[in-house]
Amino acid sequence: MFETILAFFRAIGHQVTAAICRLGRAVRFFLSVFWLSGTAFRRFHLTIREIYFSGVLSLIIILVSGLFVGMVLGLQGYETLQRYGSSEALGVLVSLSLVRELGPVVAGLLFASRAGSAITAEIGLMKATEQLSAMEMMAVNPIARVVAPRFWGGVISMPLLAALFSAMGVFGGWLVGVVMIGVDDGSFWSQMQAAVDFRLDIINGVIKSFVFGVLVSMIAVFEGYDSEPTAEGVSSATTRTVVTSALAILFADFILTALMFRGQ
């Protein structure tokens, strides 16, 4: 009995110690990435390549999802607004929902599952096949050469993807509200123009998407670099990237929303 209790506490202690060690490794890793980011900017073609892989190749899923989310918002928004006789405010509802919340959050979640998982899998496989060790033995720091360009590629891509998601969503809302249902075109756009504030809504949305980009990219590169160099290890790391990124985005969104829009 005593042995069982002891083993239980030992297991808990082991889990806590392992978690603290991992946190320590993560902090050291992030500091190294920032410290060694010079290469990613001096040789910007390395970062541009990663913007292509993380950003350009995510365009299809972002644009299509944005369109459908906007169309659903148009339908649901119209359904609710018409009960109060304010269906002309559909443009405001669609645009504010997208720019403030859905654009950065949904684009962030999609970015984590499309690009974040790919970054983790790529770095994890490079580790498992000794490509990172080979680079180290060639006196090339893999954090500077492999990790930093991927990190900054993700950070730069994310706000652009979120902006495109929102733009596509507004188009989807217009398509359903104006073209299909028949809401007045002028009211749709003019109310949107009057209600959406550049600093409060657009800039805050961009800040959110930038923060989500930093979070997802950091999680993705760290999970890949810290993964067990086996097929199972890479698979677990990829799963952890998507799950951790999703939770981090939703938590950060709550904090940022509370800071940005309190009392308004």
Binding site: M126, T129, E130, Q131, S133, A134, M137
Partner: peptide, 9 residues
Amino acid sequence: MLFQFGALF
């Protein structure tokens, strides 16, 4: 250093 399976990029 030549790695076991080449470790080509």
